[in-house]
Design a protein around this nucleic acid. Sequence first.
DNA 1: TGAACATATGAATATATGTTCATATTTTAG
DNA 2: CTAAAATATGAACATATATTCATATGTTCA
Lengths: 126, 126
Amino acid sequence: MKNKTTDCDRCDDIFIHEEVVNEVRKNMPNEETLYDLAEIFKVFGDSTRVKILYALFFAKKMCVCDLAAFVNISQSAVSHQLRVLKQARLVKYKREGRVVYYALDDEHVQQIFEQGLKHITEKKQG
Amino acid sequence: MKNKTTDCDRCDDIFIHEEVVNEVRKNMPNEETLYDLAEIFKVFGDSTRVKILYALFFAKKMCVCDLAAFVNISQSAVSHQLRVLKQARLVKYKREGRVVYYALDDEHVQQIFEQGLKHITEKKQG
DNA sequence: TGAACATATGAATATATGTTCATATTTTAG
DNA sequence: CTAAAATATGAACATATATTCATATGTTCA
């Protein structure tokens, strides 16, 4: 097999199911959207950040220092991760004096979380 | 600041909100669960895999070759990614002669997908 | 059985990313 | 203003991972 990356040279120069591929392509969200979607999930896809998100989900808001204590990594590491979460808009923050409090940005975060947990638990018992 | 990783030495040797941390910790799912959750999202967190998942979501089932054509990467790369998706149980497969068809494993995948998309689109218009 | 096709897999490489260390920035207290 | 506390950030390092190339495995058909 040729292993080229152009569409026409796959599957021995013909599609097995060309219509299927075309149909899927026709209805596809644009590349950028799917890329952004992957980026969002990538942010969820780290155990440190998952713990942070869980803590914020449960406690509503927490300061950086408490998050570091909870997750049990350095303040610096938490801060770096909070930046990632901030950029992905999964988290928002508010300064109160010297302390900065973080909180979940919206309810989607919670729902994505819950679906993920369901997936795990249902698979385990199955 | 000391930057140690033991709980008691954070925030200048005291917690700012020790009760908060303890409360969150008390209700936390076990480490393994949160780790597994992160692993699931990690699998979602790649644009190639997102495209594959989207295609399977839309077309119900597809063979490896068509997926390679659709995503526009090599057959080998798709195959490697399908293995990752398989291991995470996001995808199931069925051999029909020479051709192997892949499909989404369950409905959570779809719901996680949709929540993710909502997050993106709502943020964009906001 | 052997050739051709569809898929899977191992090794290698390049790139991305999480953590730490050191240090900068911001804010309050004195 | 200065010191100290809370947080943020840059550089470096280690690790993870996505892709490709080469090749193996499994399947059908002549």
